[in-house]
Design a protein around this nucleic acid. Structure first.
Lengths: 340, 340
DNA sequence: CTGAAAGCGCTAACAA
DNA sequence: TTGTTAGCGCTTTCAG
């Protein structure tokens, strides 16, 4: 058994040593007001002396919160976890929680069994709220959580009429402005490498691409669209595909920076000059892309703000469960470099 | 409050509906033997009907385990989390736990406050054991955990006389064989890009480098050693540094693949031909490096086995706390490509 | 094979 | 300002 050390000191023993009642000790460890200063110090001394640490299970059971929230990544392939996007989000969520007494728990959900395990973990009261990243369209996890009354916040929507609280970037607008930028620079044969189209975020970016083309009166050929899955590999594959069937393209909008960087490599390997010959724009603004390809123009998502906002919404829902849900969409920004 | 839904059904209600006692329901949900089949089914029907989910806090308090373990990453900069090394470890640890009813919790510890929070979380009985990754030499976290009797397993040692249970790769041997390989191929001016030297793992790889040089009777000049921190950036920097002060080098052993890949880039950018002119070997075998640089010969760590072993040791210690500690060192393997 | 009852350690409401 | 007390929901003897 790995439980709390069997002979661990209890609040009762602290009370005895300090010569006060259990209630008083409880007040001290919870920073509650209304305890004489001298008493407080006496209790603290006793706590120190015994090396007392509250039993969290007992605390939760007695009716208070778990003081923990989960940040869940739902991906069959955990390798995705290495993508800078997630590191940044994790980073910013951690930052937002740093001055709290809330413990951040990252969990990775790949299979349905793991999905089930997480739900029982959350419903079991081990966390006070859940944030979900990288949720695919058909995933029922958010509903499973929200329906049982657990504060839940999504990073990104699953569809246009998402019901659960979410924070999202303006993907359509971002994609539109990126493609518009390419068109303004005189490019016409603008191709796009999409994300996995079972994800709403990918659909939105594709929609933005189409809207921009339409507004400019350029026909977006079907052969200019190649589907990827946000990964580097898929970026290479998609770019190679595009080059083969549509050598006329003179610009590419990729739905992720990672794919954009890969596309750039593939283009260069194929002897195309970038950006003179072909311009490339990626979505998202990662240090990785910034470093490897200074020529890459990107649509920056406010990742730090996304993380902060998720935390804020979650904490608010934990505080006041009266709120049903809220939707927040954050603006994106085109970051120009010497690519187009 | 985000606790378990206020009106959530309890074991008591399930018992009432099924027309049995609480004890019986408890036996059923814990798959305990000695329950008549018909009774078991009746109980299960009641559970189904009420949508009952056990309250984990109550379960923990009543004396059983938390059914959760933590995988902790201690890095001031969470961006490190994006390194393939960690993705792989997380992946394999998750795999090893997949058929268990143990929930994996990833947590990231940057500051001392977070360190403290984690200790209280663990001592509070929220997890049954802790696995630690990327522990730096001076970090007291492992001791804080181990001393209070919490099953703890380290990935990598902090020093030569580590006391806490750990799993490590044969870093000295791996580095030695890598450098020996370069020397065997006739290279003489073999430089090395080390990891952060406040980490034992980096010291070991540097030692392996030195031993190999010594055994071959080649003097390892001090100017052939540049310190990095395992990151891509540092790889670039270190390689540039080496090129500037020791243009004579004809081979490089980098203490991580990421740095090796970066070094390769830098070498090429500087007009050196690889591997004809300069050979490069990296430590660790990541898909990233494999993809980006097929020419990179590497020392492969058995990451999957490391993760599996950590889990095994942890579960064993959770089962039987009689064991004090164990140390496991896993073999590495030189993976040859056309680099050297 | 099953029911009853005694806690696990804490919080919170109520007295004092 | 402080002590006392009644649970929180579950596991686990111990009887039956």
């Amino acid at each position: 058994m790995g439980r709390q050390r069997p002979g661990a000191p209890t609040l009762e023993e602290v009370a005895a040593l300090a010569g006060v009642g259990r209630g008083t000790v409880s007040r001290v460890i919870n920073d509650a007001a209304g305890v004489k200063d001298s008493t407080r110090r006496a209790v603290q001394r006793a706590i120190e002396e015994l090396g007392y640490v509250p039993n969290l299970a007992a605390r939760s059971l007695a009716g208070r919160r778990a003081d923990a929230v989960a940040l869940v990544m739902t991906e069959p392939d955990w390798r995705q976890f290495g993508e800078p996007f997630f590191s940044e989000i994790v980073q910013s969520v951690g930052d937002a929680l740093t001055d709290t007494k809330v413990q951040l728990l990252l969990t990775l959900v790949r299979t349905d069994a793991e999905r089930q395990r997480l739900v029982e973990y959350a419903r079991g009261g081990r966390v006070d709220g859940v944030m979900l990243m990288s949720v695919h369209a058909g995933d029922a996890l958010p509903d499973m959580l929200a329906e049982v009354g657990l504060p839940t916040v999504l990073l990104g929507r699953r569809s246009g009429d998402e019901s659960v609280t979410y924070v999202d970037a303006d993907n359509v607008g971002g994609a539109r402005s990126a493609v518009a930028h390419l068109l303004n620079r005189g490019r016409r044969a603008v191709a796009t490498i999409t994300g996995p189209l079972d994800m709403y975020v990918a659909q939105c970016r594709l929609r933005g691409y189409r809207e921009a083309m339409e507004r400019a009166g350029v026909e977006a050929r079907r052969s200019w669209v190649a589907e990827g899955d946000f990964s580097q590999d898929s970026g290479h594959r998609a770019m190679a595909e595009l080059l083969e069937r549509s050598p006329e393209i003179d610009a590419v909008f990729a739905a992720s920076d990672t794919m954009a960087a890969a596309a750039l490599h593939t283009l260069r390997a194929a002897g195309r000059r970038v950006p003179e010959d072909v311009a490339v724009i990626g979505f998202d603004d990662f240090p990785l892309a910034r470093r490897t390809d200074p020529q890459l123009t990107t649509v920056r998502q406010p990742l730090e703000e996304i993380g902060r906002t998720m935390v804020r919404l979650l904490l608010e829902e934990m505080e006041d469960s009266a709120v049903a849900w809220r939707h927040v969409i954050l603006r994106t920004e085109l970051v120009l470099r010497d690519s187009a």
